[in-house]
Amino acid sequence: MLKIFKYSLFDLIRSNWSIAYLAFYLMVSSSIIYMNGDITKSIISMMNVILLLIPLVATVFGAIYMYNSREFTELLLSQPIKRKSIFLGQYFGLAVSLSLSFILGVGLPFIIRGIITSPELSNFLVLIGVGLILNFIFSLLSFMVALRFENRIKGFGLSLFIWLFMSIIYDGILLLILIWFESYPTENLAITLTLMNPIDLGRVLIMLFLDTSALMGYTGAVFYNFFGVWQGILLSIAALSVWLLFPIYILLRYIKKKDF
């Protein structure tokens, strides 16, 4: 697995896409820092960018990569190596190269701005952590979709739909449910549904750490009491892990039977 991982990573970090992605993040973070002036506000602005774009880029990039390397994957499959090693190696190569672009692109401008010695460092690390997790989850999802659907149009369509669903449609449904059950206490329902969507979960975690004014009032207290204590944090981490481990399990099962 490590061999495949190494060469996929070598291949990917030299691709124009990775470089464009890195440049894009450098540009966005620098301009956000420049426009906000204040580092705390910059981190909050970055949150919106990260929650929207990381899943999108990971989705698109993951699908492109899988479709482009289809023939090479066949060559690898004909070599004396386990299927599991090939696909895990490729997946981690993909996820890690995306993560490197993200960490460098966001990290450098903030380091130049002095985040290392700032009291906001821990908040910034939470932001980076959430970004990384979303990166891994969404590149995995599009990786699987691309593996499942040989038709690129279908595969891209479905990947983008997954992104759109998780970013917006899911929240719309959540909002409608909460409005529908207006007369009942819906805090626990809201928490449960939030745990089930990694983008929402990432957003709530970031807010709890660095933007407490967003969660307020009685309900804010309920959410804070859930997510703010270690049980809640553990549960959130568990939910995110499920989002990562369950698809990997499905992937490993699927590739055993897959024809190439």
């Binding site: 060469y7 996929s8 070598f10 291949d11 990917l12 030299r14 691709s15 482009n68 390397s69 289809r70 023939e71 090479f72 066949e74 060559l75 004909s78 070599q79």
Partner: peptide, 11 residues
């Protein structure tokens, strides 16, 4: 094995 289409990692 020599596969039919020779497409390799671009970079």
């Amino acid at each position: 094995y020599l596969p039919q289409i020779a497409r390799f990692p671009e970079n």
